[in-house]
């Protein structure tokens, strides 16, 4: 059938433009919040998120709170013996002072040999690059007031943050001195489909582990709730808009049915309009979000990823399809006879 959907949109630009702008605004807001959620999650737990799929272990007594977990050397050695890729790690929040006495909050991270974490010699530290904004440079010496020890800045890495503060990779000996413990909090076994069990230890997948971090869970849950709420709103928008359009067009549908137009063609017409509006609105909001991604102020943790954007776009299309189809169910009920007996549309 000729492109009725397109012709109607061309002829009634105003009303379709209104729907398109609302869908654009809702999808743009959704992408912005999704970018923010993603940025915040990187800011909060980039250190963990950037690891490959695998399993974390902490002691059962820690009751899902990793910084209460203490895995002693014997247990660590048992696990190392059985799994070659494994490493142990600890994360502790703290701060370092520069030569002016100014404090820099950091997340101290140390681990046994692993290719995913930075390793330094005793007395050295590698930071997340964000500390450069506070004037810290390679070669600077920072003091740890807890232990009185000094750390020399050896380098910087990108995207290594934990709990919204930069990570400071330190040597295990420095860590033991600072926090007066030789135990490690966590063990990590990458790439295992099914977590092997170890006595006294509890296994967590990466996602499960991220959800044990209270701030991470609360932050992501609230933002995801907003995202889904916006998606539902967009679905309702389509349903209400097409319902109103269809009510106005009942007579037309009846006449078209009378002259032999298939009901499925009328549905296709509505779906085409929904798809055209959604795709144009999505392209515009993706483009604008990408612009914001490059222009966002440094302090805004905004991260726009193709994967999430693509997933959300598909969800928008599915929701638009469901919304318009639900409202279009009236088309099925239209009787040609009623339309003929009605007056002019």
């Amino acid at each position: 059938m000729m492109n009725m959907a397109w012709k109607e949109m061309k002829r009634n630009k105003g009303r379709f433009l209104i729907l398109g702008s609302i869908v654009f605004l809702v999808s743009f807001l959704t992408f912005m919040i999704s970018g923010l959620a993603n940025g915040l999650s990187e800011d909060n737990a980039g250190l963990i998120k950037d690891l490959p799929e695998g399993h974390f272990y902490m002691t059962k007594e820690a009751n899902k709170t990793y910084n209460l977990s203490r895995i002693d050397n014997n247990t660590q050695n048992d696990i190392f013996a059985k799994n070659s890729n494994t490493f142990a790690l600890s994360i502790q929040m703290g701060f370092l002072n520069n030569h002016d006495g100014k404090q820099q909050s950091v997340a101290f991270v140390t681990s046994t040999q692993s290719k995913w974490f930075q390793h330094v010699k005793k007395g050295e530290v590698i930071f997340d690059r964000s500390v450069e904004d506070n004037g810290i440079k390679i070669g600077d010496t920072l003091t740890n007031k807890q232990s009185g020890g000094k750390l020399v800045v050896k380098g910087f890495v990108h995207h290594s943050k934990y709990s919204h503060v930069p990570v400071a990779y330190i040597n295990m000996d420095d860590y033991k001195e600072m926090f007066r413990t030789s135990d490690m909090q966590l063990m990590y076994i990458p790439g295992e489909d099914k977590a092997p069990t170890f006595t006294g230890l509890q296994a967590f997948s990466k996602d499960q582990f991220l959800n044990t971090i209270a701030s991470y869970k609360a932050e992501q849950m609230s933002l995801n709730m907003i995202i889904w709420f916006l998606i539902v709103i967009s679905g309702m928008l389509f349903a209400i808009f097409f319902y109103m359009m269809n009510v106005q067009k009942m007579g037309l549908y009846g006449i078209l049915k009378a002259i032999g137009v298939k009901t499925s063609s009328l549905f296709r017409m509505m779906w085409t309009q929904m798809a055209v509006i959604t795709v144009i609105a999505l392209i515009l909001s993706i483009a604008l979000s990408e612009v914001f991604n490059h222009m966002a102020p440094k302090g805004v943790p905004f991260q726009f990823t193709f994967e999430i954007t693509f997933q959300l776009s598909v969800v928008f299309l599915i929701i638009g399809f469901i919304g318009s189809t639900l409202s279009g169910l009236q088309i099925k009920k239209v009787q040609p006879l009623q339309a003929i007996q009605q007056g002019e549309m």
Binding site: L252, I259, E344, M345
Partner: peptide, 13 residues
């Protein structure tokens, strides 16, 4: 072929 009391033409064509 059908002709009705009102023309019932498609408004956007």
């Amino acid at each position: 072929g059908f002709v009705f009391q009102f023309a019932h033409l498609v408004t956007f064509l």
